[in-house]
């Protein structure tokens, strides 16, 4: 690890000022310290935000305001989340290990790096780690890589489970900047596509601190999170689907779908949902939804399996939520 200075923030103002001067925030540290040990990241200064007062979950306007420092464990175990937003609990519990969930925070989970093996391997070129050096993943081992939202500069996938559920739930990120101004950014506008600048993953400016994530009032319908991976626990998704479907007299009256493991960011495509709403469930309808989702998929040699796997996982999820008799 490269040497760094360490300070502990005593207020959000203190934290954002330090970040504006080039420090990196550290909260749970489960991704940052991992990357620092490999010198993939080498901040010269860390500002520890763990003792800021951002640990509360509060009910606001029928929805939920989740402090940025609420741990993944506490969020998954929160009774309101379990009852009103079960897809979020399920997604959190499908991610990482018990130890990591105890450390990982709500804000930090959103900000874990979009990454792949080549990003971690400092002997390899990587446009994300060292902009302009190229991407070795394209012709390499790509089992974990994305098939949607990629570019010719980067095909890394966003590995979060939590963020997929948050995307489904129309979460909004509350951000404080140096000077104290607070703004809200919908998660749908929070991540940037890699394009030619894969090292820039979000719309955050250097001094920006996530202080909370808010969820609107729970929407109607059944929710679920289905994750497919190479081993039964503690592994990234090959594909995951967060879904909410509302049925009325055999017709889908509302639907929302978000995907993990296949996109350069937590993936959602409104056209897929539009195709389902107002229709009666059928194998043809589900196949059409999968066609729309995967129309622009750009698989590599190793991850071409993700196209049929995503199709099958999506169809299985829709069958589950629409009811066994539906299709």
């Amino acid at each position: 690890m490269k040497p760094f200075d360490y300070i502990r923030a005593d207020s959000t103002t203190h934290a954002t000022r330090a970040a504006g001067q080039g420090a990196n925030f550290i909260a749970g540290g489960t991704n940052l310290l991992d990357l620092m040990k490999l010198e993939v990241m080498a901040p010269h200064k860390l500002v520890d935000i763990n003792r800021l007062d951002l640990h509360q979950i509060t009910e606001v306007d029928g929805g939920l305001r989740i402090g940025a420092l609420v741990s993944n464990s506490d969020l998954a175990a929160d009774m309101t989340v379990r009852k009103q937003y079960p897809v979020l609990s399920e997604a959190l519990l499908a991610g990482a290990s018990g130890q990591l969930r105890n450390k990982a925070t709500t804000g930090g989970n959103l900000l874990q790096r979009t990454r792949c093996y080549y990003f971690y391997d400092t002997a390899m070129p990587c446009n994300k780690r060292e902009p302009g050096t190229g991407c070795q993943a394209m012709e390499g081992a790509t089992r974990l890589h994305a098939i949607l939202g990629t570019s010719d500069a980067c095909i890394a996938s966003h590995p979060s489970d939590m963020a997929v559920a948050m995307r489904l739930l129309d979460a909004v990120v509350e951000i404080e900047s140096a000077g104290g101004a607070v703004r809200s950014v919908p998660l749908s506008e929070f991540y940037r596509l890699p394009g030619q600048t894969p090292h820039i993953e979000t719309v955050l400016e250097p001094s920006d601190l996530i202080i909370a994530v808010t969820l609107p009032a729970p929407a109607k319908g059944a929710q679920t999170y289905r994750k497919v991976r190479d081993r039964a626990s503690y592994a990234f998704a090959m594909v995951s689907v967060a879904a909410r479907v509302q049925m009325d007299e055999g017709t889908i009256t509302d639907a929302a779908l978000a995907f993990g493991g296949i996109g350069s960011q937590p993936w959602r495509n409104p056209a897929v949902e539009k195709a389902l709403i107002g229709q009666k469930p059928s194998p043809e309808l589900f196949a059409k939804a999968a066609d729309i989702l995967l129309a622009d998929a750009k698989p590599q040699k190793d991850n071409a399996f993700k196209v049929p796997l995503t199709r099958r996982t999506l169809i299985a999820t829709l069958k589950e939520l629409c009811g066994k008799d539906a299709a």
Binding site: Y6, I26, G29, T30, L33, D34, K37, Q99, K103
Partner: peptide, 29 residues
């Protein structure tokens, strides 16, 4: 592993189990 993957370093901080390899000592004052 020293990277939070194996769990050999697990201990309990303020009642919660964590990977001690992925946490800085100075953060635990």
């Amino acid at each position: 592993c020293d990277h939070g993957q194996c769990g050999a370093c697990t201990l309990i901080v303020n009642g919660r189990r964590i990977n001690s390899c992925l946490s800085l000592a100075c953060m635990h004052d």
